[in-house]
Amino acid sequence: MKTPNPSPKSSSPGATAAFDSEALLRGSGLRVTRAAQTVLELLEHGSQPLTHEEVAAAYTAATGEPPDRVTLYRVLDRLVEAGLCDRRVAADRVNRFARHVDTASGNTFECDQCHKVLALPSDPELPKVMGRLGKALRKQGIDTRHTALTLHGTCGDCSR
């Protein structure tokens, strides 16, 4: 997989970028640091979820200096805890990070090749199916807190 080379957009007053990492971090109760802003901006502008190593490489490319690896782990953990990004563990058991995919249903599609995550289109039958599954699980003594569906396959870009 190629390491993306996005350049974070500045959040200075003169910037015209619609993405405001500083406001998102403050609004989530997180400290605004250069590392947190840079990582959040890299994830926002990345075309696919990134591993820790890929975030480190993109960070270095964007800022000209490598991040402290422990700081990077902590920043990614805090962004996940705050709901600003998602951590997904793929079949290869590698953590990948991406900006949070906000869907009304929480249902997503994940490409097994590039690990891009997309919101599934709404389907009026899906809540009924998920409800039946939850009911069947409760009969087995399993109490679900959250139910979401993730479909895996190959996206249109990777299938070409």
Rank of each mutant, 00 (worst) to 15 (best):
residue 1 M to I: 10
residue 4 P to T: 03
residue 4 P to Q: 10
residue 5 N to D: 11
residue 6 P to D: 06
residue 7 S to P: 00
residue 11 S to Y: 09
residue 14 G to T: 12
residue 14 G to P: 00
residue 15 A to Y: 06
residue 16 T to M: 06
residue 16 T to C: 08
residue 18 A to H: 05
residue 18 A to R: 15
residue 20 D to T: 04
residue 20 D to K: 15
residue 23 A to E: 14
residue 24 L to D: 01
residue 25 L to S: 01
residue 26 R to D: 04
residue 26 R to H: 12
residue 28 S to W: 01
residue 29 G to W: 08
residue 32 V to I: 11
residue 33 T to Q: 02
residue 33 T to L: 01
residue 36 A to R: 05
residue 36 A to D: 04
residue 38 T to Q: 02
residue 39 V to I: 10
residue 41 E to P: 00
residue 43 L to D: 02
residue 44 E to P: 01
residue 44 E to W: 14
residue 47 S to Q: 15
residue 47 S to D: 15
residue 48 Q to C: 07
residue 52 H to T: 14
residue 55 V to R: 03
residue 56 A to S: 12
residue 58 A to Q: 02
residue 60 T to M: 01
residue 60 T to Y: 00
residue 60 T to N: 00
residue 62 A to E: 01
residue 63 T to K: 09
residue 63 T to R: 13
residue 64 G to L: 03
residue 67 P to G: 01
residue 68 D to P: 00
residue 70 V to C: 00
residue 71 T to Q: 12
residue 73 Y to E: 14
residue 79 L to H: 03
residue 79 L to S: 03
residue 85 C to F: 01
residue 85 C to S: 13
residue 87 R to H: 08
residue 91 A to N: 08
residue 95 N to Q: 14
residue 95 N to C: 13
residue 98 A to N: 11
residue 98 A to F: 02
residue 99 R to E: 05
residue 102 D to V: 15
residue 103 T to C: 13
residue 103 T to P: 00
residue 103 T to S: 14
residue 105 S to V: 06
residue 106 G to W: 03
residue 106 G to D: 06
residue 109 F to H: 06
residue 109 F to D: 09
residue 112 D to F: 05
residue 114 C to E: 07
residue 115 H to I: 00
residue 116 K to R: 15
residue 116 K to C: 10
residue 117 V to A: 02
residue 119 A to Q: 08
residue 120 L to P: 02
residue 120 L to V: 05
residue 124 P to R: 12
residue 125 E to F: 13
residue 125 E to K: 13
residue 126 L to W: 10
residue 131 G to T: 14
residue 132 R to T: 13
residue 137 L to N: 06
residue 138 R to H: 06
residue 139 K to M: 10
residue 140 Q to F: 03
residue 142 I to V: 15
residue 143 D to M: 12
residue 143 D to L: 11
residue 144 T to F: 05
residue 144 T to S: 09
residue 145 R to I: 10
residue 146 H to C: 09
residue 146 H to D: 09
residue 147 T to Q: 10
residue 147 T to R: 06
residue 147 T to F: 04
residue 149 L to W: 03
residue 151 L to N: 02
residue 151 L to M: 11
residue 151 L to A: 11
residue 151 L to F: 07
residue 152 H to N: 07
residue 153 G to V: 10
residue 155 C to L: 08
residue 155 C to S: 03
residue 158 C to H: 07
residue 159 S to M: 12
residue 160 R to D: 12
